[in-house]
Amino acid sequence: MFDPSTRILVVDDMMTMRKLVSKVCKELGFTDFTEAADGVKAWEALTNANPPIGLIISDWNMPNCTGLDFLKRVRGDGRYKGLPFLMVTAEAEGHQVAEAVKSGVDNYVIKPFDKDTLKSKLEAVYAKLAK
């Protein structure tokens, strides 16, 4: 199971999606959120966070630094190799998913999504990390 006190970094260039992700996470009991509008700002938020970020939920398509670029940067830094990273996308096709998995994403959510979908994805992420 996941810990609802975990601090979540929500990354999306659209304010409405950041609000939506946070809303669904709140329905699951999470209360601590940090938001960023692209991968560059997300990196700043991640590296400056205190208390530290415990989970990243990131959009795929963003200007400046995409979700995939951000994922690669996170996984390229030894401090964040085990940090749970969930990708949210509206356009998941096979080759995209394969690239994200290769780059170290823990799971992905295809929009539209609700509380139950996100819960099952998070449970899968934390079950994998617990092994």
Binding site: M14, M15, T16, N61, T89, A90, E91, A92
Partner: peptide
């Protein structure tokens, strides 16, 4: 808030495209 219209279209488009 207007982003919401773009996001809904993104999701619908993503489904249809797939």
């Amino acid at each position: 808030l207007q982003d919401g219209a773009a996001e809904l279209l993104n999701i619908i488009f993503g489904h249809a495209k797939r």
